[in-house]
């Protein structure tokens, strides 16, 4: 089972990668407002005024 000497660190490295992603997200304020994104993704595309006529 000596493969685990490689597999467990690999799994932990991946875990730390995601932890780094978490820290990066938290420090950029991604978790500040957890209500509006759910609504904002619903809004219809804000097509630039000049485009609307052409549709």
């Amino acid at each position: 089972m000596s493969l685990l000497y490689l597999l467990v660190p690999m799994a932990l490295i991946l875990g730390f990668c995601f932890l780094a992603g978490f820290i990066f997200a938290a420090s950029r304020g991604q978790f500040e407002d957890l209500e509006t994104p759910a609504h904002r993704m619903l809004l219809p595309e804000s097509t630039p005024p000049s485009e609307t006529t052409e549709r």
């Binding site: 990066f24 420090s27 950029r28 304020g29 595309e45 804000s46 097509t47 630039p48 485009e51």
Partner: peptide
């Protein structure tokens, strides 16, 4: 599909 959005300004408050 066309779209428009203002470019992202780097966040000023509370950065690392």
């Amino acid at each position: 599909e066309a779209a428009s959005a203002p470019p992202l300004v780097p966040a000023t408050v509370g950065n690392l």
